[in-house]
Every structure is written in C-alpha cells, then in structure tokens.
Design a protein around this nucleic acid. Structure first.
Lengths: 227, 227
DNA sequence: CGAATCCTTGACAAGATTCAACTCGGGTGG
DNA sequence: CCACCCGAGTTGAATCTTGTCAAGGATTCG
C-alpha cells in the first residue's frame, strides 16, 4: 500500500460569510496556495492557525514508508491549527488552488486568554472536531468498504448542505487517492465500490468528480450497518 | 464480526493525586461502578462530566448490528464527558470495579464561563484527546495487525509510565475483546498476533493480562511502519 | 469438582490489496 | 490542428491478510 500525492486543477468555490471567530480574531494574513501545495508539515513548530477562505485542503498524518491517513478535509469557512501542541500534529496540503487566512499563534493564544467568548468558541470547535474524529474511528475500525463509502458520501452531502436540505449531486474536490487515504482503503477498492453502488442504483456517476445520491435511505441504512 | 460485553474482576489501582481541574471543580459526586457496568449511554442527554478516580473504563461507539469501536481507555486520574454536545457521543462502561467523580453539566458550563483558567484547562484536555484520536485514526486506517498491536503496547507503556521511565511489564486491565474493538481487529487476530510477537521474541506473556516488552526498539520500528 | 468465561489455535472463507492492463480526457508541442 | 503523452480512473486476476467458524485448553469461582 503506497499513498501518493494528488494534484488537481478545479473551479473554486465562493468565499463564505465572516464567522464569529473571524470577527474576534481579525482578518489575519492572507495566503494563496496552489493545488497540491504544502501548507504545514507534521512535526514542525506550530507558528500559525489557519482559516480556509476559498478552495479545499486535506489534513493528514504519514507513516515512515509513505502510507498516509487523511484526518479531515476542510473547505471554505473551516479552521485548522487554532489549538494544538508546540508542533503540528499533521500535515496540510491544498487540494485545489486555495486562499487561506493565517493567524500567528502568539496572537491566538493571547486573544484566547483575554477574550472568553473566543476561548469558548475555540472549545466548541475542538469539540466538533473531536466528535468527527470519533465517528471516523468507528468508520475506520469497524465498517466495510461499502459502508465506508456510503458514510462518506452522506457526510459530505450533509456538510455541503450546511443546515439546509442535503444536496443530491455532490461535487468532489478530492481525488480517489484522497478518498482512499481518508477511508483506510486503496484507490482500487474505492473505485470498485463506487461502481458497485452505481450498479445497484444507489448512486450515479455523471463524471468521476460528480456523484448523484439516488437512494438516500438505502445509503443511510448501509452507512449505519443495517445493510 | 460481533462484539460482546466483557466483564472482568481485577485488582484496582491507587487513587491519584488531585489535579488542577479537580481543585477548580471541587470534588464532585462520588460514584462506584462494578466491572462491566454501564456509566453513560451513547445518544442520551449529557447530564454529567466524569473523572475516573480508581479503576478503568472504556469509551465506545456502536453500530446497529452490535459492532463496536472502543474510542479510548481511561484510567485513574483521567476525564470524560467534560465537554460535549447535548447528547453523549459514546457509551462508557467500567472495565473493572471503579470509582468515579461526577460533575453536573450545568455546574461545569457555569464554572467554565466564570473561570478562565478552567476553560483553558478544558481546551488543553480537548486538544490532547484530539491528538490521540488522530493518532488512532492513522493506526486504524493504515496499520497492519502487527503494527497495531505494537503501537498499542508502546502507547500503554508510555502512558503507565506517566513521565517516568516507560514500564517493561504491562498490566492490561482490558480483555482481548476490548483490545480488538480498540484496534479494529477481531479477538482471534489479537491473540494470534500476540503469539507471533512472542515467538519472535519481541514480547513475553507471563499471563494473558501481563505483557513484558522485551525488544523496545524493534517494537517501535514495527509501530512506525519501518518493519 | 463442574460450569462459565476467556483465551488460544486450527481450518477455511472472504473481503481487500496488489499487480497489471486498459480507457478516458486534457494539455502540449510538433 | 492533431498526434502524443501523462495522470487519473476503472477493471481484471491472483494473492494475502484478516475474519469466520469451530474446537480445545486454561483459569476462575461457586
């Protein structure tokens, strides 16, 4: 099992509205990253926290021989590295051309100390990250390939919905390799499983980066292990 | 793959020294739990945060058909449920007879608001939980059975060391089933893998609940994927 | 003792990986 | 302009790790 770098040129998404944290932190330092570009490296001193303004990034951890586990995908409006140890616990790369805002740690730490609402908001962010991580642990440790893919597609749809009605047609910013590294599978298994789901009529694949969810409830049953 | 309940009677460990959080929170409400007893249930309203005073507990999430993923094992001195959503995101059971301290959520939330040092400490706890979860995601998604077991044993040894020299003889409070559910394996694979590591001289198994780590550096190499 | 539970071991099956070939689409350069 | 190339994705066949099913050994506890 070898994991490789994936680079992709893709249309970018609109910048989202400012969040509570952004108003608390200020705008930060803008930074543009090309597709595939490294933003932070696991193990290096943690100098900044980040917000994704446009595009998408992947957080991942690596093993000595190149295997990698994608920890999370982040899209416009989401944060990473705001809280953490002295070193980054994961690497971050842009999936597509992206725009980021950067906040120096010193400033962050000071702001969190002086500004209880910010500290509270940071704790809330950490909490949702933690809950996502726990759900992903269940996926990685106990779900079959089919269940993993179904769970992933539903989670993506719900997240893109962002409160509103979940979308039916997903746009995937990430490559098959990224998906595989996120789900603890190989690229071939991802591909085969998508094909099987298509044959069974649960999804349609207008193009490799587009997925239509056609049988929502069956996907849900699969994802929760009732398949 | 079916996961079952594991109950175990075992000697308990000494109560640890009070932590910073305990002084900030007060002593809480004491609660005793017998081995195997349920302490909180995934999905139920989150009424309390907890500290383990004595014994050991397992946090886990379940799938509809009974498969389970152990999220974390906690021993004396550690906390769970201090921060979280309105419902518990996981179930908690005592592994051995245990003593807990309980803090009502309302009290917790109020204290965190009024008491910045406590809020800071909670954030720090969430951060270490998050980093452990990320490391476990790498393990679950990308490591072989042998690598998983090696990683687990080393992590346990380092944690029991608690700053000091890592211990050479581990005492396992949890069953093989718990280990399997933590590592995303079956009980048979755990057993077989331990046997193989013993045959290779990396560990010794004086009894099923005791493991001697005999070749630390080889275990480390295995755990990091350089095997 | 005997029953129950946990752990270990064996034989076999299955799901996922590996290795390899092939398709598709986009970009490049002759 | 079009042939070519390259990377991403898909598909196939063989292999392998891990899971499943089954049986036997060990330990504990009544």
């Amino acid at each position: 099992m070898r994991a490789v770098l994936a680079i992709r040129a893709q249309p970018v998404e609109p910048v989202r509205q400012p969040s509570e944290i952004e108003t608390l932190l200020g705008v930060g330092i803008a930074q543009d990253s090309a597709a595939g570009q490294t933003i932070v490296v696991e193990g290096e001193p943690r100098s900044h926290g980040f917000r994704v303004l446009r595009g998408a990034v992947r957080l991942f951890k690596g093993l000595a021989d190149g295997r990698r586990q994608v920890i999370e995908f982040l899209v416009a409006g989401e944060y990473f590295g705001l809280v953490g140890a002295a070193q980054y616990a994961y690497s971050v790369e842009a999936i597509v051309a992206s725009k980021l805002a950067r906040y120096p740690c010193a400033k962050l730490d000071a702001a969190a100390r002086d500004n209880p609402p910010l500290a509270e908001r940071l704790l809330e962010l950490a909490r949702t990250d933690l809950e996502r991580a726990h759900a992903q642990m269940l996926l990685l440790g106990r779900k079959s390939a089919e269940e993993k893919i179904a769970s992933f597609l539903l989670a993506l749809a719900r997240r893109q919905a962002d409160g509103a009605e979940p979308v039916r047609v997903l746009k995937l910013p990430m490559s098959r390799q990224d998906m595989a590294d996120y789900l603890g599978l190989t690229i071939e298994t991802v591909s085969r499983t998508l094909t099987r789901l298509r044959q069974d009529g649960l999804i349609a694949l207008p193009s490799p980066q587009q997925i239509m969810l056609q049988r929502w409830s069956m996907l849900e049953a699969l994802a929760e292990g009732a398949g």
